Simulated assay, not measured.
Amino acid sequence: MYFLINLLGILVVVGVVFACSPNRRNVKWKSIGVLFVVELLITWFMLGTKIGTTIIDRFAAFFSWLIQCANDGTAFVFPSVMANENVDFFFSALLPIIFVVTFFDILSYFGILTWIIDKVGWVISKISGLPKLESFFSIQMMFLGNTEALAVIRQQLVVLKQHRLLTFGLMSMSSISGSIIGAYLTMVPATYVFAAIPLNCLNALLLASILHPVDVSKEEDVVYVPPKEEKKDFFSTISNSMLVGIRMVIVILAMVIGYVALTSAVNGILGFFIHGLTIQKIFSFIFSPFAFLLGLPKHDALYVAKLMGIKLATNEFVAMMDLKTQLKSLPPHTVAVATTFLTSFANFSTVGMIYGTYNSILGEEKSVVIGKNVWKLLVSGMAVSLLSAMLVGLFVW
């Protein structure tokens, strides 16, 4: 019975996103269907085959090494801080962004990352029939995370028309930063973290194509490639990447502090009128029907709904720390769907992060498209998290 409920949940999520779309007639259902089949095959491969689990283990090892390299740089400047057993969010999650952006810009400089994204993105675009740049961006998020991917394609974003910029904002709600995967792995099972990463990226493309379908002409359906004369020398490139990274750190830091503080203020106001009422509890109540649609028994569904409320109102770190304490007492299906759902940046703080990134890259005039469509970003982010969790849930019982 729970399997059928889980399957029904997939249809409900897609239906809700379709109902929220202001341009339903232009939805390309053939492309949506193809992407969905691809996701089912990917999920089966990752969770149902030995080769898939081996690949996940290798990715876990690579990212652990990458984060350690970033931490070595941070420890050189802040040795006493990094020597502590518990390292603050700023040092463990934000500062590594500087190195991650630089590392992947180096791969792009030598054409390695560009080649990978070009080939995989071309395959996704050909299979789905969706625009090339959007398809490529979904793959970039798989490797880079949302804000880092936006930074890497900053030259491409500058030449886009306003209506397409919203698509990248919607998709950016559904990724994670490579710099914090290591932190996730200390709290929740690696298998479901790495299963969520490609699913989130493809679901971001799938649901953005329903929520905000756009027609792209053949002339516009290109990936912007800077002319060779604009290519800087190696050391100028990596120096500029580091400066881009630190600017992103500052912007993200400001947005996270501001939105968490705002949540605290709202909770204080709500508690003044009704004792114990918080925005987290309100969101938990709202999302409880979707938690049941994950194929969970009543007790587990209420607990996962609580995690959903915590994630949306604050961030996934707070929710994961709660889940960590309950892992041994929860059945495999509940652990799988909860971990997959939490493995993304879909919350209010991320809206601020995306707006801040757009503002730093494109300027205030073009970043307005994010501020005017906050509700769409939230719908997209939460729907992607739900859909990814439901897909993983089909294969774990």
Rank of each mutant, 00 (worst) to 15 (best):
G352K: 04
E148N: 13
G352Y: 11
G363F: 04
G15M: 03
W115A: 14
F3N: 07
K50D: 14
T54M: 12
S64A: 15
T114K: 12
A346H: 03
D88A: 12
L294Y: 01
S138F: 13
F78D: 03
F76E: 01
F287K: 00
R154A: 15
L327H: 06
G245E: 06
P331H: 04
C69K: 09
F235T: 11
I112R: 06
S239D: 03
T339C: 00
W115D: 15
G271M: 06
M390H: 12
K298T: 14
E219Y: 11
A60I: 10
Y192Q: 03
Y2I: 09
L253Y: 15
L133R: 06
L205D: 00
P213N: 07
Y358V: 01
C201L: 08
F341Y: 05
S128W: 08
S217R: 06
E365M: 12
V304D: 04
L391K: 03
A336G: 02
T54H: 09
P189W: 13
T314F: 12
F89E: 05
L199G: 03
V260P: 01
L4N: 12
P226R: 05
D300S: 08
M353S: 11
V384N: 00
F285P: 00
T186I: 10
N26W: 10
I361W: 06
F18S: 06
T147N: 09
Q155A: 14
L202T: 02
Q280E: 15
I370R: 03
R164G: 07
I370D: 04
A83G: 08
G169I: 05
A151Y: 10
F194M: 11
L377A: 02
K324L: 11
G245R: 08
V27M: 07
F341N: 00
H275G: 09
Q155G: 13
A319I: 04
S92R: 09
Y358S: 07
G268D: 09
I282A: 15
L107Y: 07
G121M: 07
Y184E: 04
V120S: 08
V256Y: 00
L394D: 01
K306A: 13
L35D: 05
F345N: 01
S367I: 10
K281P: 07
L150M: 13
L323S: 07
A254S: 07
G129V: 00
A196M: 12
L211D: 09
W29L: 14
Y184V: 10
L144F: 08
T74K: 04
V223G: 07
P213K: 06
G169D: 08
M46F: 13
Q68F: 13
T350M: 12
I10Y: 02
N26C: 07
W29A: 01
V13D: 03
E316N: 05
I274P: 00
K366Q: 08
T357D: 01
K372R: 14
L40F: 14
N86G: 12
S209I: 03
I252Y: 01
V396H: 00
S385Q: 09
L4E: 14
R25G: 13
M46K: 01
V351F: 14
Y192P: 00
F234Y: 10
F18T: 10
I117F: 04
T102K: 02
P227N: 11
I5M: 11
T114Y: 08
E229A: 07
S344D: 08
V368R: 13
L185T: 12
M1N: 11
L4M: 10
S172M: 03
D118A: 13
F234T: 15
A261E: 08
F234R: 02
S172T: 05
G33I: 05
N240C: 15
I5H: 01
V368C: 05
A291I: 13
W29N: 06
M321Q: 15
